[in-house]
Each structure stands twice: as C-alpha cells, then as structure tokens.
Design a binder for these strands. Structure first.
Lengths: 200, 200
DNA sequence: GTGTGATTTGACCAACTGGTCAAAGCTACG
DNA sequence: CGTAGCTTTGACCAGTTGGTCAAATCACAC
C-alpha cells in the first residue's frame, strides 16, 4: 500500500507534522487547537484537514514516529560490547537526542503527564518487553562481574530521567545557568556519574 | 489584610484548589476547562467563579503555593552539616515529595514544558539565586576535599531529574515495572548513585 | 419564625473549538 | 488554449469555552 504523493502533498504533510510537533509538544493534545497548527504550518484549517482527517490523526502520527525513534537507542545496547562503554554510549545517544530533538522529548513528556492514554499499549507492550530484555543483559554483566551491582530497571530510568531533563526542563535549566548551553557540561557530568556508579 | 472566611468558604476554596491541582497537573493550563474543575470540586461553575475571579487566578494561586514548597527542601541544605549526608538528605526529601505530592510535581512539569510563561520571573530570580547560593556551598565542600569534584549545577539538576522523574513519568515507570511500587527501589538506587559519585 | 447576608444556580452570552462543504483557483498535460 | 483534477478557501455548523447576572435558596442570629 505505497501511497503516491505529489510534491505539494509531501511538502504540506511535513509542514503540518512539523507545526503539530511544535504546538503539541508545548501545549499537549487538549491544549492545542487546529487553528494554531494551521497558522504555524501556514495553511488554512480546511486545507490542513484535507491532509489529515482530524486533530487526533496528526497527533497519532507524530506519536507513532516518535515511539520508534524513542526505542531505537536502547535497541542498540549491545550485550557483546564493553559493558560500561555500551551504557555510556546509550547515555550519549539519549543526551544527543535531547539536544537535537527536544520537541519530540516534550511531546512524549506531555503524553505521559496526561497519563499516556494514547500510548498505554506501547508502554505495557513493546517498551516493557524491550526494557525487560535489556535489564536482563545488564543483570548478566553484573553476574559476570563486569559492572557494579545496581538495579537495572532504575539504572535505565535514571538514564531516561537525566538525559530527557535537559530537553523537557530546558527553560528551567537555562534560567539557572543564566542562558548558557547546558549540553557540554551535561555530557561531562553524566559520564562522570555513570562511570562512578558502574565501575567496580 | 487578614481575610476572614466562613467555614463554607474555607472548605470550598480548598476543594477548588484541590480539584484545580488534579486537573491542571494532568492537562496543563490550556488543556483544562473550568467545567472540569467545577465538576471535580463538586460545585457549579458560577459558584466556583464566586470564589476565584478566573481560571487564571486558580492556576496562579496553585503555582505560588507550589513554588514555595518546591524551594523549601533545597533551602534546608546546610553548609555546616556532613556534605554527603546533606546531599543524600536532599535527595530523600525530594524523592519523598515525588511520592507524596506527585500532582504538584506534574503541575510544575506542565508549566515548564509550556515554556514557564507564568513563572519565568521566579526561575530567573528566586530560584536562580538559591541555586547559585547552594552551588557555592557545594563548591566549598569540593575545595575542602569533602566530596568528589563535580559540577554543582549539574549535580543539582540531576537530583531534580532523578527524583521528579518518579512523579512525572509515573505511568511509564509503573508500566515497565509491571505496576510495582517504584519508590523503595528508587530510594536505594539513588543513594547508591550519589554515594558512588560523591565519595572520594 | 423572621430577616439578613452568605451561598448557590439556571439561563445566558460572545468567542472559540473541531470539523464540513461547495465553490473557487491553480497546474500540468494534450 | 482548454480542461481534468489537484489544491485551496470562505462560509458555515453544532458543541464547548470562559465568564456574567439576577434570582433563588440557605443558614443562622435574633
């Protein structure tokens, strides 16, 4: 079912998704209006609705794209690699995502804050399965005496929390730092944290 | 300007604030309706509006109360105490707040996600000043050779991120853990993290 | 019980919301 | 140049939103 699309359709669709990401990530699903998205995308509302059947459809498409990108870095955690190096690489990938795709991070945060009604299945299914799998990998490393014994689930939560914080709470972080770019310092600090934690 | 209030006024005001906290913390300012708050509080909308002049006023009052409670645990960080113990105590206080006041945490998260338009002054003023002050305390501990050298700002960010995550992303955390209470494990894990990081 | 002020609400309003539709404008190809 | 079909929009609709108001109800001191 390959849908053929004209250049204009391609351009408008991505303009709408881009605009939707902008607005949904700030105001959440209920706080966002179609007029806001249409204005941001530079289209009229009826025109926008000729590309997506509803507000819900735009949001759903954004969330689906996001969830894939969200799990990718964790998929890449390789049980045959150097344990501490693998974990530090995962931290780095997630921090880079917070720097380069902060709106996606905020879209996810907004959805979770609202109780995750639209992604509950994914959380309880794909996400949980993947985390269970990787937690097992980390447990293996601990059993093999390659990293210090820590709860693998809370280890993963802490990586999420520490990296996403720089995207989700960007305004607060920059206020405290007087506007300076937090990411170089964050990279160094997080390396230090996880090295100290996992080193034997 | 001490306002005298009848018992009914006292009860209704707090019912409204309670309901507002419930709804605002889930849907954010724009995503929340007065009808939702009124229903949750068990009042009619006109009655609700006889206690607060507008939706904005309820939100503002909640945010002001919140910001005070937010800064309190950091205020308590004592430069004359045992450094690592002081920091671990701060972590514990913040984690307890995430467990006992998750809605407040989410209200704050929602406001920051939206760019913090209603609390920008506080972030750049009171909050920044307090963090600057406590960062100086931590720097002193590092200079005195009492804790390992770490960036004090990122240390504070990491405490916020790691503790608030358990309130803000509660749905995700519980999905991954299959519904189990995350807080006992979190307490232990966070102690381990900050001990490993700060110990010389 | 009665009156007074506190409390509550039904009915209402203008602005906004998500969404529809028919008509208009535009573009590429013969 | 014409026209078929892609693209766009003005006008519209019903439901919701934040907020108002006068009238009704209630609680309680006398």
């Amino acid at each position: 079912m390959a849908i053929t699309r004209t250049r204009i359709q391609e351009k408008n669709r991505s303009a709408i998704l881009e605009a939707g990401l902008d607005v949904f990530s700030q105001y959440g699903f209920r706080g966002t209006t179609l007029d806001q998205i249409a204005d941001t995308a530079g289209l009229s509302k009826p025109n926008l609705l000729s590309y997506f059947p509803s507000k819900e459809a735009i949001h759903t498409e954004l969330l689906e794209t996001l969830l894939q990108a969200w799990l990718d870095p964790l998929h890449a955690l390789d049980d045959t690699g150097d344990p501490i190096g693998e974990i530090l690489d995962y931290v780095k990938r997630k921090l880079d995502m917070s720097r380069d795709y902060p709106r996606e991070s905020r879209l996810f945060a907004n959805e979770i804050l609202q109780g995750g009604p639209r992604i509950a299945d994914n959380l309880n299914g794909e996400l949980k399965a993947l985390v269970d799998e990787k937690a097992e990998v980390i447990r293996g490393w601990i059993a093999a005496g390659k990293v210090a014994p820590v709860d693998p689930y809370h280890l993963i939560f802490s990586i999420w929390a520490l990296t996403q914080h720089y995207a989700d709470f960007d305004v607060q972080v920059r206020a405290v730092l007087g506007g300076a770019d937090p990411f170089p310092g964050a990279q160094e600090y997080l390396t230090q944290v996880f090295t100290a934690l996992l080193r034997l």
